[in-house]
Nucleic acid binder design. Sequence first.
DNA 1: CTAGTGTGTATATTTACTATATACAGTGAG
DNA 2: CTCACTGTATATAGTAAATATACACACTAG
Lengths: 141, 141
Amino acid sequence: MPLTLQLPPLSTGESVPLYQQIVEAIRREVASGRMPAGSPMPSFRTLAAQLAVSLITVKRAYEELEHDGVILRHQGLGTFVAPDGERRSKSDRRTVAVSALRSAVRAGRDAGLEDRELMEILERELADSPHPAGQPIGGRR
Amino acid sequence: MPLTLQLPPLSTGESVPLYQQIVEAIRREVASGRMPAGSPMPSFRTLAAQLAVSLITVKRAYEELEHDGVILRHQGLGTFVAPDGERRSKSDRRTVAVSALRSAVRAGRDAGLEDRELMEILERELADSPHPAGQPIGGRR
DNA sequence: CTAGTGTGTATATTTACTATATACAGTGAG
DNA sequence: CTCACTGTATATAGTAAATATACACACTAG
């Protein structure tokens, strides 16, 4: 029983490709541990219908996830979370975090911000953003 | 005498549009104070030749910069840094910095990083990245 | 005032990528 | 075997980035 993915309603006007939003959403799910290794992923058609996107868009997302070793696809069988999908997803998210911090430093310096100000902004963001609860998502369908 | 812009060699394989890279590079220059209000920008053709891109690509970049109030274009005359271009550029860079920090928090949480770890990574990036010297760029040409 | 050379501007075109609809192929249960 | 599910492949429309080429404005030299 594949779960219903936790997706930010797939902003279509965000100029960031739909398939990438799907990739990121799934990486979040897998990284959180809510989808352990071996778990069945939603089928192409199920996810496509659920997100109101094309089947091909889901395929595109799954292709990237398989390329990164997060999931495994088997024709006729289905798609499943890869053995160390969680580790790979977490690793990916860490890389993204470090990269974002580097960009922040660069932009902050350009803006004339002091190091201390950047630290304070980060602290504020940490306080505002709640910790990921790690609670499983309801599996309506 | 328009200056030679400080540009990261315009990575063409980066999937980030050339004109956006140009926009960002110019925002950095203006924000740094190295191009005060009223300074003449490089002409379309000069910049295009210098960066080995099309004239249209430069036009596109300048359009966005004018829209954001960083520069002013005058047909037949040239393009110049807007009255409060520096302030606007700095404001933009600050927004980018805050946004990057927010992304970093999100990704870091997904990666299972503790708040303290994120702070430490930021400190490391701050230490590694040198302060912007604010020194003018050599104006060959 | 009339080139002429600089400036920015506009149009048509090529290319790459996103997203789609439709048809094809493998797997297992009845 | 047949059916209903899975993933796969091909051809197509729409959008955006980047280009070449031709056009319009402004100052200056003569």
